[in-house]
Computed example of a mutant assay.
Amino acid sequence: MTTPDLLLLELRDQIVELQTRLAIGQEDLIEMACDAGRAQGEIIALQDLVAELRMDRDAWKLQAEHLAFSMAPRRSAS
């Protein structure tokens, strides 16, 4: 084989290697995008849960304050 032929074969091998690496990178990117989508869904669900728990906490706090106020000893006006 001549030198130009060897160079073409070497270039072809490099192109095949780069195409393979690109395909692997694309598959990895798709997998990461799917993982990110699932994580985003979990984040939204957890944010909703936190909001619900905060409302429950506030309702319990308000109820406790009302009970504490209603059970407090009354002072007579002197």
Rank of each mutant, 00 (worst) to 15 (best):
R21A: 12
R21T: 08
L22P: 00
L22V: 10
L22W: 06
L22D: 04
L22F: 09
A23G: 00
A23L: 08
A23Y: 00
A23S: 10
A23I: 06
A23E: 09
I24T: 09
I24A: 13
G25P: 00
G25A: 14
Q26A: 11
Q26I: 14
Q26C: 05
E27R: 15
E27Q: 14
E27P: 05
D28K: 13
D28A: 15
L29Q: 10
L29K: 12
L29G: 02
L29P: 01
I30P: 04
I30Q: 14
I30A: 15
I30N: 07
I30F: 04
E31R: 12
E31T: 15
E31W: 00
M32I: 15
M32D: 06
M32L: 15
A33W: 05
A33K: 13
A33P: 00
C34V: 13
D35Y: 08
A36V: 12
A36S: 14
A36W: 01
A36T: 09
G37L: 10
G37E: 14
G37V: 06
G37W: 04
R38I: 14
R38M: 13
R38H: 13
R38N: 12
R38K: 13
A39W: 00
Q40M: 11
Q40H: 10
Q40T: 13
Q40E: 11
Q40C: 09
G41C: 07
G41I: 02
E42C: 05
E42A: 10
I43K: 11
I43R: 10
I43F: 03
I43L: 14
I43T: 09
I43W: 00
I44A: 13
I44L: 11
A45H: 06
A45C: 03
A45T: 07
A45G: 06
L46K: 08
L46T: 06
L46R: 08
L46E: 02
Q47E: 15
Q47P: 00
Q47T: 12
Q47R: 14
Q47A: 12
D48K: 08
D48H: 06
D48N: 11
D48R: 10
L49W: 00
L49I: 05
L49V: 04
V50E: 03
V50D: 00
V50S: 03
V50F: 06
V50T: 03
V50W: 01
A51N: 07
A51H: 01
A51V: 09
A51Q: 05
E52M: 06
E52P: 02
E52W: 03
L53H: 01
L53A: 02
L53M: 05
L53I: 02
R54C: 04
R54I: 07
R54W: 03
R54L: 07
R54D: 05
M55C: 02
D56Q: 15
R57N: 03
